[in-house]
């Protein structure tokens, strides 16, 4: 391909790898926009009559900034300085339970101190309020008295005091439950990561021929300032990194670009 005449038609994918062990840390492949910005400071050196006789160039800087249409766990972890943990995690579960014959069944197994796994069950009042109004039942490890309930985690069964709750009433419980999943922790002691980044692009020459190209950034220092906004529009992930030379290997490149032949 003639590298003197081409355009980048799309930024397709950004992959980030751990610089120590080379493992894949993130993939951003729904890029809605991306810009690789270049900066350089140039100070004129003037001579007789104020004429410019030379220039001093310094402070070269490359930053990559863009938005991925979808949140990426790996990218979040890179920007938070976190690791993704796969396994069992405790979450807070909201459970609406229908009472039948003074009994109810939780959807998940409530965990915590034995005899206080659920702690409180909320019963709505006539206005359907259960925070500002309604009734609160407390958990007991013994036989429930009025205003109390007991819970058996083995069978997930809740037992109410006879006559406290009429049949068909929906009560609400909030309890801790164990789920299988992936966890990212935003630790205040950890900061955003520096990854080895590869940016795949599609290029086009003047004759509509398409080519594959790739930017290689040895040290991309991710910025930990970002928003995860949601609402009427789906959450997107804005990201930013600064390219730095690899001092360990003595390489001073801020990036390499390879256009595949």
């Amino acid at each position: 391909m003639n590298i003197d005449k081409f355009t980048i038609t799309s930024y397709d994918q950004i992959t980030g790898f751990d610089r120590t062990n080379g493992s894949l840390d993130m993939i951003l492949d729904e890029l809605s926009d991306f810009t690789l910005s270049h900066e350089e400071e140039k100070t004129d050196i003037t001579g007789k009559g104020g004429r410019v006789i030379s220039s001093l160039k310094k402070n070269k800087k490359v930053t990559g900034k863009g938005t991925n249409g979808m949140l990426s766990g790996g990218a979040l972890a890179a920007m938070l300085g976190a690791e993704i943990e796969d396994g069992k995690h405790i979450i807070r579960y909201t459970d609406a339970i229908t009472v039948t014959e003074n009994k109810g069944i939780t959807k998940e197994v409530a965990t915590g101190t034995i005899g206080n796994e659920i702690s409180t069950i909320y019963v709505r009042d006539t206005n359907n309020a259960y925070i500002s109004g309604g009734k609160k039942l407390t958990q007991t490890g013994a036989e429930p008295a009025t205003g109390e309930f007991s819970y058996d985690p083995e069978t997930k069964e809740i037992t109410f005091f006879e006559g406290d709750i009429t049949d068909g009433t929906e009560v609400i419980a909030f309890y801790d439950a164990e789920v299988e999943g992936k966890k990212i922790s935003n630790d205040s002691n950890n900061y955003s990561k520096t990854l080895q980044v590869f940016i795949d692009v599609t290029c086009q020459d003047g004759c509509d021929n398409l080519f594959h190209g790739q930017f290689i950034i040895d040290r991309a220092d991710f910025n930990g300032t970002f928003d995860v906004a949601g609402g009427s529009d789906p959450a997107t992930l804005g990201f930013e990194f600064t390219s730095m030379p690899n001092l360990c290997t003595g390489k001073s490149q801020l990036w390499d670009f390879v256009l595949f032949d």
């Binding site: 795949d200 509509d208 021929n209 398409l210 080519f211 594959h212 595949f260």
Partner: peptide, 11 residues
């Protein structure tokens, strides 16, 4: 549009 080479075709 058409790929300019084999690697672009696969990509």
């Amino acid at each position: 549009s058409k790929p300019g080479n084999e690697s672009a075709r696969k990509y």
